[in-house]
Structures are given as structure tokens and as C-alpha cells.
């Protein structure tokens, strides 16, 4: 195999990687409901559509999402959202300044030598809809992409599952010697079909170190502000 250059894949190259029989090299973006519209010749991206599952941010009893200040940050994360299933043919309205999570209709699996960026389509952007903020997708990712939708406009927008909302741009990933990368991101947080709701904010080492560094007084006062019923005695603090 020749030395790979760090380039974006053309639509032809994307289609070829999706067709390859070699599972280690196959790029999966599936289903492509309308190949002619989603992988346009002469371009360098795949259009992806809005999926069926949404998470709407709801009012919460928690004062803030505070990884080290509340007794159970995972609980506060899950309580932040209300799930909504919208079938193909259904609709959901995003109101001005509302934030919600959505998924791509397409399932994505990146081989070890490809990464991707997800970018909102400009037509939606002109209406005020921001589609994705965490735009980088690492090699080895397998699942439906979570989109962070926010309506920055002044008009409610009605969204339909199946509408093309974003584009994926693919780039080669090379190793230290400049060859196509072959190591997958073992142990990455998102692998396989996963939930939209985040499971953690920091990796284990960062969380442990920061938990030790955050001053106990700050932790307790934050917990009190959040209305937590956590006992305030230092010996009972689960994060100590």
C-alpha cells in the first residue's frame, strides 16, 4: 500500500469505501436512502438525515450540572432530558433558543484509517438551526451520531425525521510513519449503538484527580445549592 496523504475523500472515494468487501476497511453510512442526493458526484461529503429519537432538555431540580458538586452527576445528567420518539412521517418543533439532542438516521462505522467531521447544512444554518457542536468523529466510531440541535433563529422550526440536516466529511488518518492508521481506538467512550445522553463528562483519571483537587468546602456548598440531601459530614462524602 502506498503512502497515504492527509486528504478529504471525494464522493467517489466515499462510495468506493462503502462498497468494499474488506470489513476492516469498509466505511459504513447506512442506509443511504437516496444515493444520488446524498453522495453527489464532484462533492466530498455524504448528506445525513435526521433520525427518530430526540432528547429534550427539561426543567431540573438540580441547580447545575456539576460533575464534582452533586452526589450523583450521572443521575443529574439523565434527569436533564426527556426522550421523544418521532417516527418517519412524524414531526417535532424546535422553538427559538431551544436545545435538543437528536440522532442521525444513518448508522455510521468508521474504519481505522478514516475520521470524519459532521457539519450542519447551510440551508438549515441560514434558518438559525445549529446542528452539531461536537463535530469530530474518531476512527473506530460505530453508532448513530448524536446531533446537538439549537435554534438560534426567531422562528420555530418543524423538523421531520428523514430530512437531510448535516454532512459528513471524511479524512484519512495516518500513523507516525505516514501509513494509513490500523489501530482502532480501543476503549473509546462511544462504541457501538449508544445512548444520546452522555455517560460521563471526564475520563476516569481526570475525574479522580479533579475530585481530589476540588476543595471540600466548594463541593459541599455546591451540593447544598443544588438542593442535594447529601449528608454534609466530610466522612460521608462519596467523592472524598
Amino acid at each position: 500500500m502506498g503512502r497515504a496523504s492527509v486528504t478529504a475523500l471525494s464522493s467517489g472515494a466515499i462510495a468506493a469505501r462503502m462498497e468494499t468487501a474488506d470489513l476492516d476497511r469498509r466505511l459504513v453510512v447506512s442506509p443511504i436512502l437516496d444515493p444520488a442526493a446524498q453522495i453527489k458526484p464532484g462533492q466530498a461529503a455524504v448528506d445525513v438525515r435526521l433520525g427518530f429519537d430526540f432528547c429534550l432538555v427539561t426543567a431540573s431540580r438540580h441547580g447545575s450540572i456539576d460533575e464534582f458538586g452533586s452526589e450523583n452527576p450521572l443521575e443529574s445528567l439523565s434527569e436533564l432530558y426527556r426522550r421523544e420518539f418521532v417516527p418517519l412521517g412524524g414531526r417535532i418543533t424546535i422553538h427559538p433558543h431551544q436545545f435538543m439532542l437528536a440522532q442521525t438516521l444513518e448508522y455510521l462505522r468508521l474504519p481505522s484509517d478514516l475520521m470524519a467531521y459532521v457539519v450542519g447544512r447551510s440551508t438549515w444554518g441560514r434558518l438559525g438551526l445549529i446542528v452539531a457542536t461536537a463535530v469530530g468523529i474518531h476512527p473506530g466510531f460505530a453508532g448513530s451520531l448524536t446531533l446537538e440541535l439549537r435554534n438560534l433563529g426567531e422562528t420555530p422550526l418543524t423538523l421531520y425525521p428523514g430530512q437531510a440536516v448535516a454532512q459528513l466529511f471524511f479524512h484519512h488518518v495516518v500513523d507516525a510513519s505516514g501509513e494509513p492508521a490500523s489501530e482502532k481506538a480501543a476503549g473509546t467512550q462511544y462504541t457501538g449503538t449508544v445512548d444520546m445522553i452522555p455517560r460521563r463528562l471526564s475520563d476516569a483519571v481526570t475525574a479522580r484527580k479533579l475530585r481530589g483537587l476540588v476543595r471540600p468546602h466548594d463541593r459541599m456548598s455546591t451540593a447544598d445549592e443544588a438542593g442535594s440531601e447529601t449528608p454534609t459530614g466530610a466522612d460521608q462524602n462519596p467523592f472524598q
Binding site: L33, D34, L88, G89, Y107, G192
Partner: peptide
């Protein structure tokens, strides 16, 4: 999870 995703998206493909 993978099978559910497969069923969901195969159905979407069929409906389309």
C-alpha cells in the same frame, strides 16, 4: 442494540 438498530433502519429503508 445492534439488532434493534438494524431492524429500525431496515424498516426506514423499506418505507422509503
Amino acid at each position: 442494540e445492534l439488532l434493534l438498530k438494524g431492524v429500525e433502519l431496515a424498516e426506514a429503508r423499506t418505507m422509503w
